[in-house]
């Protein structure tokens, strides 16, 4: 017969072992916001590191694109490994929806997996990331919702166009127009946002207005996520081609290759 003392001893040992093994052993709430300094302003830090290798004039380069990783963690891990096998990409863009419910642990899991990427990573916000306190967590972890970057004389515009979850009517078109003004000097202009204009949260008016801005300011390509499906084509009669990245579940990664004569979207399966 096993004595009580032995059972208690075993139980305590099991508990102590488990405590040591668990990450983030103290968790006050799934809705907690507030990230560690080392996990903060990741986009700002990434832009600094990307621009260190940039030039004032155009030179051909490639970038990696993926998005809607949600909680498809195993596929997400494979995408990271796939990008790591490529030495010819200068940075990677995540097209938003890095979480399913915008909760604290999902942000930490994203941070954990994406930190395995050897290329600098820019992450834009998706509609799911606005749930719960995701709006705050995103800002703490990555920086401003809307931002721009100039790299090798190309303009990269990153727009937060989430509508329903913010309970607003329109994306910040004023900001978008402001940054696209006077952008003729750049070799290429790209706009990245999570939701494509033909998707449900956009009203017909907003869809039309978004494409008009793209057309008016000669944007070369409008890039999105949200639909979970790969699309690349001329969506409207006027305006640039549109691209949507698929979700991690589809087993695809994307590349944008730029050279003197133009650019192309390339899809590879892993």
């Amino acid at each position: 017969m096993v004595s009580n003392r032995k059972i208690k001893g075993l139980l305590s040992a099991a508990v102590i072992l488990l405590l040591g093994a668990c990450e983030n052993i103290i968790e006050y709430s799934p809705y907690k916001a507030g990230v560690k300094v080392s996990d903060s302003d990741l986009n700002i830090k990434a832009i600094e590191s990307i621009q260190q290798n940039g030039t004032d004039y155009f030179v051909p380069f490639s970038i990696g694109i993926f998005g809607d990783t949600h909680t498809y963690y195993d596929e997400f891990e494979k995408q990271v490994r796939y990008f790591n096998r490529k030495d010819d990409i200068d940075f990677v863009v995540h097209m938003g929806d890095l979480t399913l419910s915008g909760i604290y642990r999902e942000f930490l899991w994203y941070r954990d997996l994406s930190s395995g990427l050897k290329h600098p990573l820019l992450t834009i916000i998706g509609n799911h990331d606005y749930l719960s306190n995701g709006e705050l967590l995103y800002k703490e972890m990555f920086g401003p919702y809307n931002f721009t970057m100039v790299y090798n004389n190309c303009l990269f515009v990153f727009l937060d166009d989430v509508i329903w979850e913010k309970n607003v009517e329109d994306p910040d078109f004023d900001w978008l127009e402001e940054v696209l003004k006077d952008s003729e000097g750049y070799k290429y202009r790209f706009v990245f946002s999570h939701i494509p204009p033909w998707s449900d949260p956009f009203s017909r008016g907003n869809e039309y207005y978004y494409n008009r801005l793209m057309h008016e300011y000669n944007v070369d390509l409008s890039l999105h996520g949200h639909t979970h499906r790969f699309y690349y084509g001329q969506m409207y009669e006027t305006g640039p081609p549109y691209f949507t990245a698929s979700s991690s579940k589809q087993g695809e990664v994307f590349f944008l290759d730029l050279d003197e004569d133009g650019f192309e979207i390339r899809m590879e399966r892993f």
């Binding site: 668990c22 983030n24 052993i25 909680t71 498809y72 963690y73 195993d74 997400f76 909760i103 642990r105």
Partner: peptide
């Protein structure tokens, strides 16, 4: 007490990445 959340258990079941040591808290 060690506790976890329905959402974490779901990912424990659904993914290999989320393992037992990632879902418990004290």
């Amino acid at each position: 007490e060690m506790s976890t959340l329905d959402a974490y258990v779901l990912e424990l079941v659904r993914t290999k990445y989320v393992s037992l040591d990632k879902i418990w808290n004290l």
